[in-house]
Simulated assay, not measured.
Amino acid sequence: MGSISTSRGAVPHRRDHRIDALRGVALLMMCIDHIPQDVLNRFTMRNVGFADAAEVFVLLAGYASWLAYGRAFGRKQPVMSVLARIGRRCWQLYVFQMVMVVVCISTIRIWRHFWPVPVDFLEPELAHGLDSAWRVLSLQALPGNLNILPLYIVLLLGFAPLYALLRGVGTPVVLGVSGAVWLLVNLDPRLNFPNWLDPDGWYFDPLAWQFLFVLGVCGARLAGRHDGSLPRSRVLAGVCGLYLVFSFVQSFPWTDWGFADLRPVGMAVPDKMILAPWRLLDVLALFYLVQSSPRATVLAGTRGGQLMALFGRHSLEIFTAGTLVDLYGRLVLTSFGTGWVMQVVVNVVGFVVLLWVARNRERARAAARRPAAPKPDGLPAHAPLCGN
C-alpha cells in the first residue's frame, strides 16, 4: 500500500511496508488457525488477545480500499472509471470465492472415497448436492471457512456511497452512524444477513463488521494527513499497550500450557460474529501501535518484514492458496496422524506453496509494470509490424 503524501501532488507516494507486512502476518496466521491439528496455531494471535487475524484482515481491507479507490476519487479521476475498478475487484473476489467452493467440495467428495472424513468436513451443501448450488452462487449459502470474501465483497460494494458520505457529511457523522449500527447489532445479534447453511446468519455479520472497515477507511484518511502514519501520542500508545497486556493475560490459554489460570476476570470468549467490543478494541489498539510507530517502519524494512510484505501485497492470491492449503492440511493430518513428521511436512509444504504463489505474483506484477522494449528499426512499441 502506498502512504499518502502531505501535499497533494507534490511529494511522490512511498509504499508503506507496515501495512503489507501486517497483512502478510495476518494471512499466515489465518492459514494456521484453520488447521486445528496444527501445533503452530498455539502461537498465533488468537492465543494472546481477544481479536485474531480476521479482524486485522478486514481493518486493513478498509485502509487499503481508501488508498486504492478513495485517493482515485480525490484525484478527480472519472467516477465511472473508479467504479469500474471497484466492480472488477468485486467480480475478482467473487470468482476466487467460487473457485474455492468448487475445489473444496470436490476435494472432500473425492477424498472420502479413499479415507474417512470427519463429520465437521461434511458441510450441509455436500448433503444437498447440486440442489444448493444456486444458493452458493448467489452467496445465500456460505460454507465454513469460506465466509470472509463474501463479507469483503459487500463492504467493497458500499465503498462509493461511503466515500460520498465522508465528503458530504464528514467523518464524525459517518463514524457515529456506522458505530450506532454496530452497537445495535451487538445489542440484538439477530440482525444479520441470512445464511441458508446456518440459522444464525453470516459468520461475519456485515452489519457489525462494516464498522471495522469504516474505521480502516477513516484511519487511512487520517494517516494521509500525517505522511502516511497515524499521529503518535505517548498517552494513547500507553493506553493501547496496557489494553493489549490485559487482553493477553485474559486470553492466553494458561491451563492448556499447564500453568495456573491467571485471568483476572471471569468472562466468556467475546463473540466474533457480531465483532464484540473487546475484539474491536483489541485490533484497534494493535493497529494504532503499529501504524504510529517509526520502529514498526524499520521492522517492516528488514528481511523478515519484507517477506511478510511480499505475502501482504498479494493478499487475494495468498488467502485463496492458504484456504486450499488449510483444507489439504486438515485432511492429511486427520487421515495420516498428527505426529511431528506430518506436522513438519504440512507446514513446510504449505509455506513453500504460499511463497511460490507470492513470488510468481510479484514477478508478474513487475513484468506488467516494466516499460515495453522498443521494436526493431526504430518503430515504437505500439506500432503494428508488417508481415506475420
Rank of each mutant, 00 (worst) to 15 (best):
S5W: 06
S5N: 09
S7H: 10
R8V: 12
R8Q: 14
V11R: 12
I19Y: 00
A21G: 03
G24D: 01
V25D: 00
M29W: 06
M30N: 04
I35R: 02
I35D: 01
D38I: 05
N41H: 11
F50M: 02
A51W: 01
A54V: 14
V56A: 06
L59P: 03
L60A: 10
A64C: 11
W66Y: 15
W66G: 10
L67P: 00
A68S: 10
F73Q: 11
F73A: 14
G74L: 15
K76R: 15
Q77C: 11
S81F: 05
A84K: 11
R85V: 06
G87S: 10
G87Q: 08
F96L: 07
M98A: 03
W115R: 00
W115M: 00
P116I: 11
P118S: 08
E125L: 13
G129F: 13
L130P: 01
D131K: 13
V136G: 01
L137Q: 02
Q140T: 06
A141V: 05
L142I: 06
G144H: 04
L146K: 00
L151Q: 06
L151V: 09
Y152A: 13
L156M: 11
L157I: 15
G158P: 11
P161E: 08
Y163R: 14
T171E: 04
P172F: 02
L175T: 02
V177S: 12
G179P: 07
A180C: 10
V181E: 05
L184R: 12
L187Y: 10
D188L: 12
R190F: 00
L191I: 14
F193L: 13
P199G: 01
W202Y: 14
D205H: 11
D205Y: 04
W209D: 05
F213S: 11
V214M: 12
G216F: 05
V217F: 09
G219T: 08
A220C: 09
H226C: 14
H226A: 15
L230Y: 14
P231L: 10
R232I: 10
R234I: 13
C240I: 09
Y243D: 14
F246M: 15
F246A: 14
S247D: 03
W254E: 04
W254I: 08
D256E: 01
W257V: 05
G258P: 00
F259H: 12
G266I: 06
G266V: 10
M267Q: 09
V269F: 06
K272L: 06
M273L: 07
L275Y: 10
L275W: 09
A276I: 12
L281R: 07
A285R: 07
Y288K: 09
P294W: 12
P294G: 12
T297I: 09
T297Y: 03
A300T: 01
Q306E: 02
L307V: 03
F311I: 01
L316Q: 08
T320Y: 06
L324S: 01
D326L: 01
T334E: 04
T334H: 02
G337K: 10
G339T: 08
V341L: 15
V345T: 07
N347C: 07
V348W: 04
V349T: 11
G350T: 04
V352A: 12
V352Q: 01
V352N: 00
V353N: 02
L355Y: 08
L355Q: 08
R365H: 11
A367R: 13
A367E: 10
A373V: 12
P374W: 04
P380S: 13
P380I: 05
G387K: 04
